[in-house]
Amino acid sequence: MKRATNAASLPDIPEDVRAAVLEVTNRLKELPGALLPVLHGVQAALGYVPEASVPLIARELNLSRADVHGVISFYHFFRSKHAGRRVIYLCRAESCQSMGAATLEKHIKQRLGVDFHETTANGAYTLEPVYCLGNCACSPAMMVDDELKGRVTPEGFDAWLAAEAT
């Protein structure tokens, strides 16, 4: 593969980010259309896709930095900032709306003291909206990391939160 020649201009990258990115790109860069798998890999390793990793990902995949930035910013799932220790994805879509998702949303925001896309002050939880988790027969639904929860009520959320804290 043709190697881009911008290697010399690569800015300083924290060593852990560099190591994580190279581990992922070395493993996946030969895949056709590798950018999404690579970004998933980087986010899985670091919890987010740091701004500083963009030039290195671009170089390794022989893409422009604009290409990589454009893809990261297009997809809701990729984040450029560190998330809390756990990410709560709360469904806002119609099926959950019909079963009280708006009330649940208000409750959770107030309970955690954050709005969507924000992280609690203690760094424990990030709250993200999601548009359908495919659990529409058990609405309202939320997913914590990759753990799906159904028939969530404000009381049920509080009970879960209390159990998490212990």
Partner: peptide, 22 residues
């Protein structure tokens, strides 16, 4: 291949773009 949370990628042509890494 795992998507990344964009509803529009359910459209077949968007999906192909996404599979190509765009």
């Amino acid at each position: 291949r795992i998507a990344a949370g964009a509803y529009i990628c359910g459209d077949e042509t968007s999906l192909l773009e996404s599979l190509e890494g765009k």
